[in-house]
Design a protein around this nucleic acid. Structure first.
Length: 645
RNA sequence: GCCGAUGUAGCUCAGUUGGUCAGAGCAGCUGAUUUGUAAUCAGCCGGCCGGCGGUUCGAAUCCGUCCAUCGGCUCCA
């Protein structure tokens, strides 16, 4: 007998070799039906795998992320099985579970698989799922595994196995399909009740663009049809919120092929919105002791050679431009930091002057590959809410905290309630991709880790995600639909100060090197506005929205009164317009609702006589009538509250 | 950049196998209506069917190429 301890701290005795599935059965039939995998001593294994020693066991169901992973991973196998049956001879790459669902990379060989084939594959999957095919785990020697795939002619699997150590190779078999796989898998295909293949796309074998491009099919599956329906509904909602769609509808921005792809044009309402965001941040920065600076859009190529940007990115960026007579070379500014370093160098600093904080809404230009451009989130010209803090090593912590304060205030004012911090460190295996000494890197990485830990924020650590000159702390926010976006970023940098030979005089009367902190709370104005559009579905907070109120006269007769109403609102700094069109009130309301303008003031004979306004709130309907003064004060209050962060 | 898909009026989309196929709705303009909480009616304007080449008696429709957009991959200071 062995002792099995469960998450509720109970310990039960079972015969040696019992499976998690049987433990579940012992607890309840219902649980046994729902168990997808198990975590045994911290390791996720099949529910059908025997347990030989005393262990801590957690049964995993759909409610556990690891349970869902097992389900989706098994779904990928199921899809492969279906594909193999429908298209004999296809070869398989890898088929993992991902954040939302699964995919499988396949080499279709002589077949072509297109979007139209997906329903067919789906149907086959459902058929196979109903057979409740058991996922049978088998450990095989490396040679046998290689022979199997060599015989089958699947060079991708052969390559994968070649890199594995002998003795660790496991195969899983379900129905007629056998796959090299680490597992874990769900007990059988039965729980895959609802499945949807979502898209098909090309993907390089092993992510290497020099290697063959395989066909990747994405899908998702659920144990209940209803969950799939809900998920598909959520996808539809996400599509409705696509910033490219509502950004166009609300006249926030546009693109023109005549200007160039990836170069956004901000329309008046978008510019108004952006201006508000900038003013808001400028206020916070003023309060935090920042100084505003301004730098040009191009800079001598030598500047970026000094910073290292040219060596690192020059080959892939926009070509340099030259002066006609002297032949001097300039680059479109890809980063603001070198310019800010030069501003720092223009003056002498004592330790008493530090920290120095230079802020600029700096527009930068980067050549992004054509296939990578995407709405406002990935563009070739964008404005960073950039700032560089030059401080003493002792001040780093305090300054870093100040930056985090600003970021958190912004998230609060804009209703981003869910976010996690991501500490991005360099890839320890590829140190040559980064500039600067090991010592500097270790110092800055440790600083970021310490500060993040002390802040008490939730955070994850990612290796290989650092900037080439220093580690980063990025803020990933979750929007209203639960999708993650990377927004604000803070970076500690010991390297650029060295490259630019920045100095300050210490209390010892010696020259010292300052530390630089790069930070951008919004990230870029373009990207931030895109995320904001999707997060709010265009219903911006009152303080931010370009048009806060629209006055809707019942007919022309009340235009005079409407003007009086509007000018009173303007005295309160409330932004609005009058709908003077010769339309019925229903029409004016509809159009105003669709433009997501938060308040409508309907005025007609009654309102004019009583000197009141009828208030209608976007998305909520008629709120009854009140005096204009009362309305304006209430609005002002709401706005002040929103901004009081 | 790579793979695949798409590209018809300002917007959303119809246009079967190449032959009155250049259309609709919305928007816009003009006029009528002077309106009470999500679309008043009528008339009109508007397109070199993404660009360029080709096949054909004839191309929005077939082929090639370039550009752009979309879905991914790779990349992201």
């Amino acid at each position: 007998m062995i002792n099995i301890s469960l998450p509720d701290n109970s310990v039960k005795q079972y015969p040696e070799g019992i499976t998690s599935q049987d433990i579940a059965k012992d607890i309840s039939e219902g649980l046994a039906r729902n168990v997808l995998a198990a975590k045994v001593n911290g390791e996720v294994i099949d529910a059908l795998q025997p347990i030989h020693d005393d262990a801590e066991v957690k049964l995993l169901t759909w409610d556990d992320p690891e349970g869902r992973d097992a389900m989706w991973h098994s779904s990928a196998h199921l899809m492969a099985e279906a594909i193999e049956q429908l298209y004999p001879g296809v070869k398989f790459g890898i088929g993992p579970a991902i954040e939302n669902g699964f995919y499988y990379d396949i080499d279709p060989g002589e077949h072509t698989i297109t979007q139209e084939d997906l329903p067919k594959i789906e149907k086959k999957m459902k058929e196979l799922a109903k057979q409740k095919q058991e996922f049978v785990r088998e450990e095989v020697p490396k040679k046998q595994a290689l022979d199997y795939y060599k015989k089958k002619g699947d060079e991708y699997k052969v390559e994968l196995i070649d890199e594995l150590e002998d003795g660790t190779i496991t195969f899983y078999q379900s129905g007629d399909f056998t796959d090299l796989c680490r597992g874990p898998h769900i007990p059988h295909t039965g729980p895959i009740k609802a499945v949807k293949l979502l898209s098909i796309a090309g993907a390089y074998w092993r992510g290497d663009e020099n290697r063959k491009q395989l066909t990747r099919i994405y899908g998702i599956s659920f144990p209940k049809k209803k969950q799939l329906d809900e998920y598909l509904e959520m996808l539809e909602e996400a599509q409705k919120r696509d910033h490219r769609k509502i950004g166009k509808e609300l006249e926030i921005f546009t693109f023109s092929q005549n200007v160039g792809s990836g170069l956004p044009l901000w329309m008046p309402k978008g510019a108004e919105l952006r201006e508000r965001l900038e003013q808001f941040l400028k206020r916070l920065q003023r309060e935090a002791g920042y100084d505003q600076v301004i730098t040009p859009h191009i800079g001598n190529v030598n500047l970026y050679k000094t910073s290292g940007h040219f060596q690192k990115y020059g080959a892939d960026s926009f070509q340099t431009i030259k002066t006609p007579n002297e032949g001097e070379e300039f680059m479109l500014k890809p980063m603001n930091c070198p310019h800010h370093c030069e501003i720092y160098k223009a003056k002498q600093f004592s330790f008493r002057d530090l920290p120095v904080r230079y802020a600029e809404f700096g527009t930068v230009y980067r050549y992004e590959q054509s296939g990578e451009l995407h709405g406002l989130t990935r563009v070739r010209g964008f404005t960073q809410d950039d700032a560089h803090i030059f401080c003493t090593p002792e001040q780093v912590k305090e300054e870093f905290k100040g930056v985090m304060d600003i970021i958190l205030k912004i998230f609060k004012a804009l209703d981003f309630e869910n976010f996690v911090a991501q500490v991005s460190l360099r890839d320890p295996k590829n140190k040559e991709n980064y500039i600067g000494s090991d010592e500097n890197w270790e110092r800055s990485e440790q600083a970021i880790l310490d500060i993040t830990e002390e802040s008490g924020l939730d955070y994850v650590v990612e290796y290989g995600e650092a900037a080439f000159y220093g580690p980063k702390l990025d803020f990933m926010v979750k929007d209203a639909l639960g999708r993650s976006w990377q927004l604000g970023t803070v970076q500690v940098d010991y390297n650029l100060p060295e490259r630019f030979e920045l100095e300050y005089t210490g209390s010892d009367n010696e020259k010292h090197r300052p530390v630089m902190i790069h930070r951008a709370p919004f990230g870029s104005m373009e990207r931030f506005v895109a995320v904001l559009l999707e997060h709010t579905a265009g219903k911006f907070p009152l303080w931010l929205t370009p048009e806060q109120v629209r006055v809707l006269p019942i007919s022309e007769k009340y235009h005079k009164f409407a003007e009086k109403v509007l000018s009173l609102l303007q005295n309160y700094d409330i932004r609005g317009q009058i709908d003077r069109r010769n339309e019925k009130i229903g029409r004016k309301i509809r159009d105003t609702e669709l433009m997501k303008i938060p308040y409508m003031l309907i005025i007609g004979e009654k309102e004019e006589q009583e000197d009141k306004v009828s208030v209608r709130k976007q998305g909520e309907g008629d709120k009854g009538s009140m005096s204009l003064d009362e309305f304006a004060k209430e609005m002002k209050n709401t706005i002040d509250n929103e901004l009081n962060v």
